[in-house]
Design a protein around this nucleic acid. Structure first.
Lengths: 125, 125
DNA sequence: CAGTATCCTGCTTGATACTG
DNA sequence: CAGTATCAAGCAGGATACTG
């Protein structure tokens, strides 16, 4: 899941920061623990995950239920607001499935060589 | 249009780079010239606009019809692919209208002071 | 008019090491 | 286990000046 080699970061539509979209998908089917999230998000550093989770929390998209337990167990889950994002995300995915090839073709055509063209690539593109 | 003071850059969903979404909206109703685009995109520099337009062009989202005229007139318009983005964008807008307040409330709650919290804010959030 | 060329700053991201 | 601290690099994006 979430192969870092996958060119999905070329998507012209993005949710939050680099990891936010993937995190939301991971939480789609229920609460997950910090370390559980690190598995599918291959190679994400603890810092990056923390940063992204805090941003999502701050925006009220996820919640971190307080457990009485020491600190050994922390879970994250989508809030109501977070779940409300799932539908727009599904629309994005549909768009991607339908038009991904066109976008890739356009890219290749614009850079006949295998090179990544020069800089000037806008971030999310 | 596109007031730079508008906190729309807090949107958790983004299209392309900082200006891409606005550019697409500007082209929604027909071709526009370079300088025409600069009006609604208040304060955008020529460089920023060029960069963003090139990225959109490279991805096949917009096209720049070649005119026989010298170079005095250049127009940009949405490609078929670009127009296909309008529907997902509309979904995003709907989401924003419905949930914007919730997101803002969550933000305020997380930073009782007027301060922008510390850094660590994920880019697009 | 429609850009290019340069310079420059700050955010984003990752690597690495450390902690309750 | 669930993070925090620190350092470092790279890119995004803006300001400014110049051009065919």
């Amino acid at each position: 899941m979430f192969d870092p080699l996958c060119p999905s970061d070329l998507m012209p539509i993005r949710i939050g920061d680099k990891w936010a979209g993937m995190i939301i998908r991971c939480l789609e089917r229920g609460p997950r623990r910090f370390s559980e999230l690190r598995i599918p998000l291959r190679g994400i550093t603890a810092k990056a995950l923390t940063t992204s989770l805090r941003a999502l929390e701050r925006d009220g998209l996820i919640i971190r239920p307080a457990y009485a337990e020491p600190v050994r167990r922390v879970e994250y889950e989508l809030s109501q607001l977070g779940r409300s994002l799932l539908q727009p995300m599904a629309v994005m995915c549909t768009w991607a499935q339908e038009h991904w090839d066109e976008l890739l073709d356009a890219r290749e055509a614009s850079s006949p060589l295998g090179r990544t063209e020069q800089a000037g690539q806008a971030r999310g593109q």
